[in-house]
Simulated assay, not measured.
Amino acid sequence: MSTNATSPSGAGAEPWLIAGLGNPGPQYAGNRHNVGFMVADLLASRIGGSFKTHRARAQVLEGRIGTPGISSHRIILAKPMSFMNVSGGPVTALRDFYRVPVERIVAVHDELDIDYGALRLKKGGGDNGHNGLKSITKSLGPDYHRVRFGVGRPPGRMTVADYVLRDFSTVERKELDYFVDRAADAVEALVVDGLERAQSTYNS
Rank of each mutant, 00 (worst) to 15 (best):
M1P: 04
T3Y: 13
N4W: 07
T6A: 15
S7G: 15
A13C: 12
I18N: 06
I18A: 04
N23F: 03
G25K: 09
P26C: 09
P26E: 03
N34D: 07
G36C: 07
G36P: 06
M38E: 01
D41E: 07
L43G: 02
S45R: 13
S45E: 15
S45A: 07
I47M: 10
I47Q: 02
I47L: 15
H54I: 13
R55F: 11
A56C: 13
R57Y: 06
A58I: 10
Q59V: 02
L61V: 06
E62I: 11
R64T: 06
G66I: 10
T67D: 14
P68V: 14
G69A: 13
I70K: 12
S71V: 13
H73P: 08
R74S: 15
I76M: 10
M84L: 08
S87I: 03
G88Y: 02
V91L: 08
V91E: 05
R95G: 06
Y98A: 05
Y98W: 09
V100N: 07
I105V: 12
A107L: 12
V108S: 04
D110P: 10
D110N: 10
I114E: 00
D115C: 06
Y116H: 10
G117N: 06
L119V: 05
L119F: 09
L121T: 03
K123F: 07
G125W: 09
G125V: 02
N128E: 06
H130W: 08
N131V: 04
L133P: 14
S135V: 09
S135C: 13
K138D: 15
L140F: 04
G141T: 14
G141C: 14
Y144W: 12
R146L: 14
V147R: 00
R148N: 04
V151R: 00
P155F: 12
M158Y: 03
T159E: 10
T159D: 07
A161L: 13
A161Y: 08
Y163I: 01
V164Q: 04
V164M: 10
L165H: 09
F168R: 02
S169H: 10
D177G: 01
R182A: 12
A184C: 05
V187G: 00
V187N: 00
L190A: 00
L195T: 08
S200G: 14
N203G: 05
